[in-house]
């Protein structure tokens, strides 16, 4: 009986969490423009969505910024993580604290600080400023996904590679990088997801003519309801869901492999919520 009550409470919370998404999805297939009525099934909004120039352009912008910022952030972040791993004492503390700064700062503060920087250095607001900002908030997350992998790394692997005649660079490239690859990939996917999910920072650092999907949705939503947004939400939700499943399956497989192999300290939960926030 108590167990039944407990379960119902959780199901109620789930209903609360999923109801808005379900409503959006159902309305994206609704033929009646006025909501509340069911006007029959239609794919009209999806067709209109793909014919909408503004939305399509912002989709391209989102993907370009997402892919390039994720790639660059992954390179910088992975190198940084290797460096941080080999640094000790005060410099390490200092770097880690500054790394946490964009993670802990309210998003709007990160956004306005970057905006001030670009104004101050007289940069033209547009693709470049967007890209720089996205890399900036992505790098810490890449570092935080790669560092645990480095900590799990067998210290003697690198030395063994050197003893067997590798140059330090070869040892890094052929031994260390393959070993920490799962962390790098997770960081990359995370950075990409964060980038396409971001609104606040993009809103402050974009220029005229360039807008990401989030910005387009914001300006459309401010003018009221638009069935095309429902269709867009459905697509984006499905897409992000697929990405999330890939990441989770990867992590689960990794953990299983590790459990079967060497003993590894338990990692943080893969259900980390910090990445999908406002």
């Amino acid at each position: 009986m108590v167990r039944w009550l407990k379960r119902s409470y959780i199901y109620l919370i789930f209903a609360f969490l999923y109801l808005p998404i379900a409503v959006l999805m159902v309305y994206s297939l609704n033929d009646a423009r006025s909501r509340g009525m069911w006007g029959g099934f239609t794919l009209r909004w999806y067709v209109e969505l793909f014919q909408d120039r503004t939305i399509m352009n912002s989709l391209y912008a989102t993907l370009i910024i997402g892919v390039s910022s994720a790639l660059i952030a992954t390179v910088i972040g992975t190198m940084a993580a290797i460096g941080i791993h080999n640094t000790r004492g005060v410099p390490k503390k200092l770097i880690m604290n500054v790394t946490y700064l964009p993670v802990l700062n309210p998003e709007i503060v990160t956004a306005i600080s970057l905006m001030l920087l670009f104004v101050f250095s007289r940069m033209r607001f547009g693709y470049i400023t967007l890209l720089l900002s996205h890399i900036t908030f992505n790098v810490p997350y890449v570092i935080l996904s790669v560092l645990p992998k480095l900590r799990q790394l067998n210290k003697h692997l690198y030395e063994a590679a050197l003893d067997l005649g590798c140059t330090p660079l070869q040892a890094l490239w052929k031994v260390i990088i393959p070993e920490i690859m799962p962390g790098i990939i997770t960081g990359l996917l995370l950075a990409f997801t964060l980038s396409i999910d971001d609104f606040v920072v993009s809103f402050f650092t974009t220029g005229s003519g360039v807008s990401t999907l989030s910005i387009t949705v914001y300006s459309m939503a401010r003018r009221g309801i638009n069935p095309k947004i429902n269709a867009l939400s459905t697509i984006m939700f499905t897409f992000v869901l697929a990405l999330l499943i890939i990441v989770n399956v990867r992590q689960a497989r990794e953990e299983r492999k590790e459990r079967n192999g060497r003993r590894v300290p338990k990692k943080d939960s893969p259900y980390d919520p910090r990445f999908g926030s406002a």
Partner: peptide, 21 residues
């Protein structure tokens, strides 16, 4: 996992959904 999935939907769209409701 079910609990976290909605969090991965774009924050803006999640807020917009309440507009519809």
């Amino acid at each position: 996992l079910l609990f976290v999935v909605p969090m991965w939907m774009n924050f803006l769209l999640r807020t917009y959904a309440w507009l519809t409701i």
